[in-house]
Design a protein around this nucleic acid. Structure first.
Length: 878
RNA sequence: GGGAGAUUAGCUCAGUUGGUUCAGAGCACCUGCCUUACAAGCAGGGGGUCACUGGUUCGAGUCCAGUAUUUCCCACCA
C-alpha cells in the first residue's frame, strides 16, 4: 500500500482508540503486579474540554502509559464532579431561559431538571478526553453524586460528627447574594477594585459636636449600632460615655473604645455594623452591641434597614450617599482602592452575613497532613508549593461546608425541634431520636432533615478513597491506595489537594498519593489567562482535528516545564504536527526499500552500534527527567534524538544508493531500533507510534505498541558516541566549506580529506572512513601528510584536518577566521596558565580539577600549534 | 501588612553539589537548496557583560548582602 507523504491523524486516531477499547487495553483489576494508580481530577459535569484539561490529562496519560509499558498494573480512574454551585447556577439559568423560576419549583422538581441536565451534558467531557487519547479505565467511571460516592459522604459526615469534629454555629459568613448561599473562604476571590471612601459625620447626642467616620459602604449605615475609637487616641478621649446619632436613621448608638481601631486610618473613628463585617461582629460581641441586618439574602435592603427597602445595595450606596450629602452629613469623599471579594462561581460581590452553618473543625485533622507534606511523605513537584501549603495549614480556619443549594449531597442531619440527630439514614436518625427522647412513638415524619447540601469539595476530598469504594470494602483500596501521583493545577491546592491529604490521614491513616505534580495555568502568549471574554482560548477539539491529538499533546507538553505556567502558542502544536509527519516519512522511507540478502557493511555495523548507544543514553536521560516530572525536557530529548540522530544521521548513514535494495540484516536492525523509538515515544504520542509500530512489522492480533516494554536507560559507550560526534563534526565542517564556497551538495567535485597523523585512533575506528566519505560526499578520505596541496584546514578537538578542493577559495576570509580563533585560543590558554601558576589553585583545588586543567592546557597548546601552521600555510597561498 | 519565587540569546525556558561536559535547547532569524522519505522539508550559519552593585573564593550564571524590575500566594484597616 502506498503511504501518503503527509501523516493524516484522523482515521488513525479513531482506529487505534477503538482497537484499544476493543481489547480492553485500559482496564485494570488487582493482581500480583505492582500497582500504578492515578485518579483523575474530576471535571465538572457541565464542563467542556479546555486547554487546562488538555494539559492536565495529557500529563496523566503520559505517566499512566509509561507505567503500563514498564509492566506495572496501571489504573487511571476517570469520573466527573457534580460541582454543586456551578451546576446549580447553570441549571437555574437554563430554566430561566425557559421561563421557569427556581423559586416556583419544589426541590424534587428542580432536582429532576438537574439530573436531566447531568445526563445530557455530564459525559461530554469524558468523550472529549478520549479524543485526546486518554487511557482511562472507563468501566470505573465514577460520579461524585452516584450511590457509592454519596454513601461515602454520609459515612464521613456522621463519623466526623460523632468524633466531635463537626459543629454548627452562627457567625459571619461569606454570602453569595446571587446564588443565595454561603461560600467557604476558598471560594471567595479577592481583587483590587476602585471605590470611594466616604467621610460622614455623626452628631454627638445632646450637643452640637460631631464625630466623623470613614466608610466605603454608606449603605450599611442603617445597620450601625456603635461608633468605635481607639482608647489611646487623645482626640476622642472626651467622648467617653457619650452617644452618637446615626444620620438620617436617627438611631442613638454608643461611642465605644476598642483597640481594634487604627488611629492612623481615615479619621480614627469607625462605624460599627456587626451584621455586615467580621471585625465589626467581633467588636459587637465584645461590647454587647445590637445586631441589625439591613440586607435581604439577595443583597437588597431589608425591612430592618428602614430605607430603600427592596432596592439593591449598590444602588442604595449612591442614593444614601446623596441623601447624606443633601442633609449635610457627608463631609468629603475620595477615590479609594480596596480589596473586594467576589464569588468564584457567580462573580457576585460577597456580602458578609450572619448565619448558622455547619463547619469542620480543621485544626483537629490538619496536623498529620501538614507533617506528611513537610517530610516529603507526600512529595510535591515543584517543591516550592510546600511553602504555600504550610502557610495555609498552619493558619487553617474552619471549613464551612453547608450550602443553601439543592444540587448536592443533602446534609444527613435531622431535627426535632432544637435537637439534632446525625445519621446515615433517616431510619437511623429516628432510632437515635427515640433513644434520646425516650419517645417510641416518633416516626420519620417527625424528623425534619437539614435543607442544605454539602460543599462540592466535601465529596471531592474523599475521591482517592471513594473511587475504590474504600468506605465500604478493602479489596481494591488495599491494592490501589495510596495512588501514585496526583496531577492538578496549583490553583486548587487548598480547595482540593490539602483536603484530600487530610481525608487520607483521617480515614485511612495514610497519604492519598505519593506525589503531587502541580501543573501551571494555561495562558496565552502575552501571559494572559485564557478566558472566554478575551476570546484567547483556543477550541481544544478544533486543535485536535487540525493538528492531530499527538500534535496537540506534543505542543502542550513541550511548552510546559514542570510547574511553570504554560504559554500556549499554536506554533508548538504545529511543531508537534511536523514531528508526526517527520516520523511518518521515516516510516515511508524504511518501508520503501527492496530487500536483498546481504551482510552488514562496516558502516552499517558502526551505525547500528552508535544509534543503539545513543538510544540508551537518551533513555537514561529520560528516566532522570521522569523522576522529576520534567516531561517537557524528556520529550525534547526524544525529539532531538529522533529528528537529529535517527532521521538526519542514522537513516542517511544506512540508506542505500538510489533505487538500490537494502541488506536484510541492516533493515532488520533498523526496524528494531525504530520499534524501540515507538516504544520510547508512545506515552507522549500514542496514536502515531501505535500506527508506526503496526506498520513496521506484521503484528500478532492484540499486540500493541502501548504494551511494548519501555526502553531502559542501560549503559552506553560514551567513547563510541564521542567518536561519532567527531566524525559528525568533520562532516559538518566539510558541508560548511561547501556552503561558503558556493558548492552544492550534489556537485561532482574532487573532494579529499587528509587527516593529520595524530588522528589514528579516529581513522582506525571501523566504518569511520566510510562514514565521513558517505556523509560528506568525499571522493576520498585518507591518512596522509598534511603538508602540501590542501587548501582549507579545520580543527576538531585536537585534530586538524584539511580539505583539498579543486576550486578557488577566499584566502583572506579564511585567514581572518583562523586569526580570530587564534586570539581566542591564546586567551583561553593564558587563563589556564594563570590558574596553574597560582599556588593557591594548585594546592587548594581538588586534584581532579587541576589535572583537568592541565589536560585542557595541553589540548589548547596543540590547537594553537595547529592554528599557527594553518595560518602560515594560508599566508603562503596569498 | 506578611510570605514565596523570578530576572540567562529576539521569544519561551534548561543550567543538580562553585572549576569549558558552562554559557545551552527549542522556536524565531540569516544564507543556500524542489538533493531520489519528508518544503509540515534539507544543509549551513550568526546571536547573550547570565538584571544591577558589592562581598566570599585561587575561581561565581551558580554562594552571601543590598538595589531595581516583576509574578504569585496569604491576610485584610473601616
Amino acid at each position: 500500500m502506498e503511504l501518503s507523504t503527509k501523516y493524516s491523524p484522523e482515521e488513525i486516531e479513531d482506529k487505534w482508540y477503538g482497537e484499544w477499547l476493543k481489547h480492553k487495553c485500559f482496564s485494570s483489576t488487582p493482581d500480583e503486579r505492582e500497582a500504578y494508580s492515578v485518579v483523575i481530577p474530576p471535571p465538572n459535569v457541565t464542563g467542556l474540554l479546555h486547554m487546562g484539561h488538555m494539559l492536565n490529562n495529557t500529563i496523566q496519560d503520559v505517566l499512566i502509559r509509561k507505567a503500563r509499558q514498564e509492566g506495572k498494573n496501571a489504573c487511571w480512574v476517570p469520573g466527573t464532579d457534580h460541582a454543586s454551585i456551578a451546576t446549580e447556577a447553570k441549571v437555574v439559568k437554563m430554566l430561566r431561559e425557559k421561563g421557569i423560576k427556581k423559586s416556583d419549583l419544589t426541590r424534587e422538581k428542580f432536582l429532576e431538571y438537574a439530573w436531566e441536565w447531568k445526563e445530557e451534558y455530564g459525559g461530554i467531557i469524558l468523550k472529549q478526553l478520549q479524543k485526546l487519547g486518554a487511557s482511562c479505565d472507563w468501566d470505573r467511571t465514577a460520579f461524585t453524586m452516584d450511590e457509592v460516592r454519596s454513601d461515602a459522604v454520609n459515612k464521613v459526615f456522621v463519623d466526623l460528627y460523632n468524633k466531635g469534629k463537626l459543629y454548627r454555629k452562627k457567625r459571619i459568613v461569606n454570602w453569595d447574594p446571587e446564588a443565595l448561599t454561603v461560600l467557604s473562604n476558598e471560594e471567595v476571590i479577592y481583587g483590587h477594585e476602585n471605590s470611594r471612601l466616604y467621610k460622614v459625620k455623626y452628631q454627638i447626642e445632646g450637643t452640637n459636636d460631631f464625630i466623623t467616620i470613614a466608610t466605603t459602604r454608606p449603605e450599611t449605615i442603617p445597620g450601625d449600632t456603635a461608633i468605635a475609637v481607639n482608647p489611646n487616641d487623645p482626640r476622642y478621649a472626651k467622648m467617653k460615655g457619650k452617644k452618637a446619632i446615626v444620620p438620617i436613621i436617627g438611631r442613638v448608638v454608643p461611642i465605644i473604645f476598642d483597640d481594634y481601631v487604627d488611629v492612623e486610618f481615615g479619621t480614627g473613628a469607625l462605624k460599627v455594623t456587626p451584621a455586615h463585617d467580621t471585625n465589626d461582629f467581633d467588636i459587637g460581641e465584645r461590647h454587647n452591641l445590637e445586631v441589625v441586618d439591613v440586607f435581604n439574602d439577595n443583597g437588597t435592603m431589608s425591612e430592618a434597614a428602614g430605607v430603600y427597602v427592596g432596592e439593591d445595595r449598590f444602588i442604595v450606596r449612591k442614593k444614601f450617599a446623596k441623601d447624606l450629602d443633601a442633609a449635610g452629613y457627608l463631609m468629603d469623599t475620595e477615590d479609594y482602592q480596596n480589596n473586594v471579594g467576589r464569588s468564584e462561581r457567580t462573580n457576585a460581590v460577597v456580602e458578609p452575613r450572619l448565619s448558622l452553618q455547619w463547619y469542620v473543625d480543621m485544626k483537629s485533622i490538619a496536623a498529620p497532613a501538614l507533617e506528611a507534606v513537610m517530610s516529603d511523605e507526600v512529595e510535591f513537584f515543584p517543591k516550592n508549593q510546600k511553602n504555600v501549603y504550610r502557610h495555609w495549614m498552619e493558619n487553617i480556619r474552619d471549613w464551612c461546608i453547608s450550602r443553601q443549594l439543592w444540587w448536592g449531597h443533602r446534609i444527613p442531619a435531622y431535627y426535632i425541634g432544637e435537637d439534632v440527630f446525625v445519621a446515615e439514614t433517616a431510619e437511623e436518625a429516628l432510632n437515635l431520636a427515640k433513644v434520646k427522647t425516650g419517645n417510641n412513638n416518633l416516626t420519620i415524619s417527625d424528623l425534619r432533615q437539614d435543607e442544605d447540601v454539602l460543599d462540592t469539595w466535601f465529596s471531592s476530598w474523599l475521591w482517592p478513597i471513594s473511587v475504590f469504594d474504600g468506605f465500604n470494602s478493602r479489596e481494591e483500596l488495599d491494592y490501589y491506595y495510596p495512588t501514585s501521583v496526583l496531577v492538578t493545577g496549583w490553583d486548587i491546592i487548598f480547595l482540593w489537594v490539602a483536603r484530600m491529604v487530610m481525608a487520607g490521614y483521617e480515614w485511612e491513616g495514610k497519604r492519598p498519593f505519593d506525589h503531587v505534580y502541580f501543573t501551571g495555568m494555561v495562558r496565552d502568549k502575552q501571559r494572559r489567562k485564557m478566558s472566554k471574554s478575551l476570546g484567547n482560548s483556543p477550541d481544544a477539539l478544533g486543535l485536535i482535528s487540525e493538528y492531530g491529538a499527538d500534535g496537540v499533546r506534543f505542543g502542550m507538553l513541550l511548552s510546559s516545564p514542570a510547574g511553570g505556567d504554560l504559554l500556549f502558542d499554536d506554533k508548538l502544536v504545529e511543531q508537534g504536527r511536523n514531528f508526526s509527519n517527520k516520523i511518518w516519512n521515516a516510516l515511508r522511507l524504511v518501508k520503501s526499500w527492496e530487500l536483498i540478502d546481504q551482510p552488514m557493511s562496516e558502516l552499517d555495523a558502526l551505525s547500528v552500534e552508535w544509534i543503539n548507544n545513543r538510544l540508551n543514553q537518551v533513555a537514561a536521560e529520560l528516566e532522570d527527567n521522569f523522576k522529576e516530572y520534567k516531561l517537557s525536557e524528556g520529550l525534547m530529548s526524544i525529539y532531538n534524538f529522533v529528528w537529529g540522530d535517527f532521521c538526519s544521521w542514522y537513516l542517511e548513514m544506512i540508506k542505500p544508493d538510489y533505487q538500490a535494495p537494502i541488506g536484510s540484516e541492516i533493515l532488520k536492525e533498523t526496524v528494531s531500533i525504530f520499534t524501540k523509538i515507538t516504544a520510547l515515544l508512545h506515552p507522549f504520542m500514542p496514536f502515531l507510534t501505535e500506527e508506526v509500530f503496526q506498520q513496521l512489522e506484521d503484528r500478532k492480533q492484540g499486540e500493541f505498541c502501548m504494551f511494548s516494554a519501555y526502553p531502559k536507560g542501560d549503559h552506553f559507550d560514551q567513547k563510541l558516541i564521542d567518536m561519532v560526534t567527531m566524525g559528525q563534526d568533520i562532516v559538518t565542517n566539510v558541508r560548511d566549506i561547501r556552503n561558503k564556497n558556493g558548492l552544492k551538495m550534489r556537485d561532482e567535485l574532487e573532494l579529499t580529506i587528509i587527516a593529520s597523523s595524530n588522528s589514528k585512533a579516529f581513522m582506525n575506528t571501523s566504518g569511520m572512513k566510510e562514514f565521513c566519505t558517505k556523509m560528506a560526499i568525499l571522493s576520498s578520505f585518507e591518512l596522509a601528510d598534511k603538508e602540501g596541496q590542501s587548501q582549507i584546514g579545520f580543527i576538531t578537538g585536537a585534530e586538524s584536518l584539511f580539505v583539498k578542493l579543486e576550486i578557488e577559495i577566499d584566502v583572506e576570509a579564511e585567514l581572518e577566521e583562523k586569526q580570530k580563533d587564534l586570539v581566542y585560543q591564546q586567551g583561553f590558554v593564558k587563563s589556564i596558565q594563570g590558574k596553574l601558576s597560582n599556588d593557591k589553585f594548585v594546592s587548594g583545588a581538588p586534584a581532579a580539577v587541576v589535572d583537568n586543567e592541565r589536560k585542557k592546557l595541553e589540548d589548547g597548546l596543540e590547537r594553537i600549534k595547529l592554528l599557527i601552521q594553518d595560518i602560515e600555510r594560508l599566508e603562503n597561498m596569498k
